[in-house]
Every structure is written in C-alpha cells, then in structure tokens.
C-alpha cells in the first residue's frame, strides 16, 4: 500500500461529525479569547479579522481537495462537504461580528455594502455562498441531478476569489498575507483550467 493509500485509509476512519465538531468549536474558542483579553485591547477588530482569515483558510482547503488528490493521491473528498459548510459558517460568523459588534447599525451596514467596493465584493461572495451551502446535502444532489448540482457548486470558484480580493482590498497597504491567499486561490483555480476547458468544450 502506498503512503497516499495509507493516509486515505486513516482519513476515512475520521467520522464526519468529528470534523464538524472541531471546526465549529474554533469560532467559539476565538470568542472566548476575545472576551478574556487574549486578542488584545481592541477585540472587535481582532475577532473580525481572525474569523475572516479562518474562512479564507477553509476556502483554500476546500479548493485544494481536487488538486491534492490528483497530484498526491491523498483524498479529502469525503470531508469536503464538512469543510465547505464550515467555511460558510466562518464567513457567517465574520459577517455577524462585522454587523453586530463592529458597525452596529443596519442602515450603515447597508450604505457600506453599496458604497465600499471591498465590502460589496465580500457580500457578493457571501450571497453566492448561500445557494451552495443550502444545497450541500445528498437530497439536493439527487433532486438537482449531479450535472446541475456540480455547475451550481462551481460558484465556489467565484466565492474564493471574492473572499481573497476582499481581504487584499481591506488593507491600507499591499500586505503579504492576503496576497498569499489570493495567489493560492488563483493557483488552485489555474490548475483546473485544462479540465474545465475540456468539460465545457464537450
């Protein structure tokens, strides 16, 4: 048995609920850190950023599943749904902290969404996540049929780019970290181009 196969056997032994549980606990752990002063003297901003970065990390992992399998044989495919739904959960937490703890005013939230391009782009990503998250279940796959379902879930590509661009744009200067996320997203998408070209040419 190859190393990749051994890793896959081990990965298959991890029940989904463990992935959901560990993943879902992280934002609450962050909240605990923010409440106890471990996130510094301005915890609203720290928490908001930590959740946004966590969402970006989850999105990159989701996007890496297919290239990782093709390049190394290691398959996270059985945990991709959990990872994707966790990414949605993190984005929702990030949005909640932004609205409730940071901006604190529905009218100003709306004016920010329409006036500030980086927020507009972030919101586009969130809105596109809604149908993808809502159909991340076996029932939807059956009802929609695999082809239509797959097409809908290609929105993930747009969502990841929106998230990364939103992250780059919120900075006052060209910071390295958000640019690394953007580069990762673009590289993981570029890897798919030949497959997608074949698929849409057919």
């Amino acid at each position: 048995m190859t190393t990749a196969q051994r890793v896959n056997v081990a990965l298959r032994k991890v029940p989904s609920w463990v992935v959901y549980l560990i993943g879902a606990v992280i934002p609450f752990y962050y909240l605990y850190l923010a409440l106890t002063g471990a996130m510094g003297v301005e915890p609203v901003n720290s928490l908001e950023r930590a959740l946004g970065e966590l969402a970006m990390q989850a999105l990159v992992v989701v996007l890496a599943v297919t290239p990782l399998r093709k390049l190394t044989g290691v398959s996270l495919i059985m945990h991709r749904r959990a990872l994707g739904l966790l990414a949605f959960f993190y984005v929702a937490c990030h949005l909640l902290v932004w609205g409730v703890l940071d901006v604190q005013d529905p009218a100003r939230m709306w004016s920010d969404i329409v006036k500030r391009p980086y927020i507009t782009i972030g919101m586009v990503g969130f809105v596109l996540l809604l149908p993808v998250a809502a159909t991340s279940n076996n029932f939807s796959v059956r009802r929609m049929g695999p082809m239509r379902w797959r097409r809908l879930h290609m929105l993930t590509y747009v969502i990841c780019v929106s998230g990364a661009v939103h992250y780059v744009m919120v900075q006052k200067v060209w910071e390295i970290e958000p640019l690394i996320y953007l580069a990762l997203v673009l590289a993981l998408l570029a890897y798919r181009i030949p497959t997608l070209r074949r698929e849409f040419a057919a």
């Binding site: 923010a34 409440l35 003297v41 301005e42 915890p43 609203v44 928490l47 703890l101 940071d102 901006v103 604190q104 005013d105 100003r108 004016s111 920010d112 500030r116 391009p117 980086y118 744009m169 919120v170």
Partner: peptide, 20 residues
C-alpha cells in the same frame, strides 16, 4: 475615507461590546 465611514469611532478599551 473611500473605504470606510469616518462618522463614528470606537474608543479602544471598551471590550467586545463597546458602542461606537
């Protein structure tokens, strides 16, 4: 600021639930 409103501010030190 082109990317955020300058109408309000948050005083550092008010914790997670400080009002703007």
């Amino acid at each position: 600021h082109p990317r955020w409103s300058q109408a309000t501010e948050r005083r550092v030190g008010g914790g997670l639930f400080s009002k703007r």
